[in-house]
C-alpha cells in the first residue's frame, strides 16, 4: 500500500500517522506539502491531525482551500481512498468530502483521553479487520469534535450505514456517559456514500503499540493494507 500524508502549516500528528503506517506496512508514506497540487499517485491519502493554519477562523477551513485539497477532491471523486483524522476530519468536511461539521466540544474544553468506540460496520476498506459491534479503545485529543449535521443529513447517514464509529462506554453502550464531546448520536466517525472516505475524531494512530496506548487502533491500518495492497 502506497500512502501519502498531507502536511499543512500547523499539522502536528502527521508523524504519528506516518509512524503507524510504517509499523504496519514497513514502508514510510510520502509526506505531501500543502502547496503541492500534483503529488504522485497513491493508494491512500491521509489528512492528519493538528492545528492547520492555527485552526484560526474555523478548524480546517483554510486548509480545505489549499491546492493539495483541490487535488484530493479530484482523486476522491475517482475513488482514491481518503482518511481524515481529527483536524483531517475537520478539513475533509470543510472541503465537502463528508457531510456535516465538527463544532466546539459541548463542555468547551480540549479533551485528551482514551475513549471507547463501537465499530458500526466491518464492511469497509477501513474497518474490515474489526467485527460490527466490536468495542475498541483509542484516544481522542481535540477541542472541536462535536459532530453536527442537520436532521435530514443525519437520517441519510444513519439509513445508508455511513456511521463508522460511535462513542460508547467500556461495555459498549452508546450513551452520554461514553461521549467525550457532545457529538450528535455519539458519532465519532463517518464514511462518504461509497465508503471510500473516512473521517474520524479519535486517533487510531496513537493506539498501535502495547506500551503506548494499546493496539486497538492497529486494525484500521492493517485493514487498509489488506484492502489496498
Amino acid at each position: 500500500m502506497k500512502a501519502a500524508v498531507l502536511v499543512f502549516p500547523g499539522s502536528n500528528r502527521e508523524g504519528d500517522v506516518a509512524q503507524a503506517i510504517e509499523l504496519v506496512t514497513g514502508r514510510r508514506p510520502s509526506m505531501v506539502w500543502h502547496g503541492d497540487g500534483d503529488f504522485e499517485k497513491v493508494d491512500l491519502i491521509v489528512v492528519p491531525g493538528g492545528f492547520s493554519y492555527g485552526d484560526y477562523l474555523r478548524c480546517g477551513a483554510m486548509a480545505a482551500q489549499s491546492p493539495v485539497m483541490a487535488e484530493v477532491k479530484k482523486r476522491a471523486a475517482q475513488g482514491v481512498p481518503v482518511l481524515g483524522i481529527c483536524n483531517g476530519f475537520q478539513i475533509v468536511t470543510e472541503a465537502g468530502l463528508l457531510p456535516g461539521t465538527l463544532m466546539r466540544n459541548s463542555h468547551l474544553k480540549f479533551v485528551c483521553s482514551d475513549v471507547h468506540l463501537k465499530v458500526e460496520t466491518s464492511q469497509s476498506l477501513f474497518t474490515n479487520r474489526y467485527q460490527a459491534g466490536q468495542v475498541i479503545k483509542v484516544p481522542v485529543a481535540h477541542a472541536e469534535g462535536n459532530y453536527f449535521a442537520d436532521a435530514d443529513t443525519l437520517k441519510r447517514l444513519e439509513d445508508r450505514g455511513q456511521i463508522a464509529f460511535r462513542y460508547c462506554t467500556p461495555s459498549g453502550v452508546v450513551e452520554g456517559a461514553g461521549n467525550p464531546n457532545g457529538s450528535t448520536n455519539n458519532i465519532a466517525g463517518i464514511f462518504n456514500e461509497t465508503k471510500t472516505v473516512l473521517g474520524l475524531m479519535p486517533h487510531p494512530e496513537n493506539a498501535v503499540e502495547p506500551m503506548f496506548g494499546g493496539t486497538d487502533g492497529k486494525g484500521l491500518f492493517e485493514g487498509m493494507v489488506e484492502a489496498l495492497s
Binding site: 477562523l57 483554510m62 482551500q65 456535516g100 461539521t101 453536527f148 442537520d150
Partner: peptide, 9 residues
C-alpha cells in the same frame, strides 16, 4: 461562501 463562513451551520 468559500472561506469566511461554513454555511452548514
Amino acid at each position: 461562501r468559500k472561506l469566511l463562513a461554513n454555511t452548514v451551520i
